[in-house]
Amino acid sequence: MIKSYKEYLRKTKRKKMITLFLQIFILISFIFLWEILTRVNLLNPFLVSSPLRITELLIEMIKSGELFPHILVTTKEMIFALVLSSISGIIIASILYLFPRVNDILDPYLITLNAIPKTALGPILIIYFGTNEKGIISIAISFSIIITVLSCLSYFNNVDKNLIKMMKVLNANRLQLLLKVVFPSSFEGLLSQLKVNIGLSWVGVIVGEFLVSRKGIGYLLMYGGQTFKLDLVMLGIIILSIITLLLNIIISLLIKRRH
């Protein structure tokens, strides 16, 4: 028994190691192939850049100190947007849950608002909030707030009917129902909505920076594209990927800690 259990542990560990190895292998061979193909001019380095050129640019920008302010600004805007839209989305959903009648009345408006392409709101929001960080954050919030409200409501309304009946039998009011049963029941759902919101806030912040074009990674991307500095564009995309990866790891750790 013990021997076979050890065997099982060993096999599982081995499988994990192989997966990790292959993941890293794919990344390295991709970078390698990219470099080789641009060196031999099978790919045009002017259009696709190359790992070496990107690294050189990265080092240069770190040395000159112009990279970090951009990363900082974008990350700050993104986290503001994420927190504000998630919290206010949950609050609005809670209010609608407490007053089902209001929810019924507002339902078509929410669905229509959610269906509007959010980019279309960008120019208006910038006029209202200014061509600054406030404007960018408001654009990013507009990307995720309505969908947060809608999916929170659907998590709230999918709570086990047995638990709701149990609360009714106890004569609980709707606020007690929300706080004591609905919130804890929907916790997992709310966390996965938070993950979705990370992605949406990124899109919102980058779109905002495209429009405002002062600083941030979105600005670097825009500037790089317009001046045909594709090294810069590629660097921007890579930095975005790394920050997203880090944020996802943080959220996953938060979820794990709860279990």
Binding site: M166, M167, L170, A172, K180, P184, F187
Partner: peptide, 18 residues
């Protein structure tokens, strides 16, 4: 109809809370 995030004792005293 027990609340899975509460332990036995907290489930039993739940009606008192409500």
């Amino acid at each position: 109809a027990l609340l899975p995030w509460r332990n036995v004792l907290d489930n039993v005293i739940f009606p008192l809370e409500i």
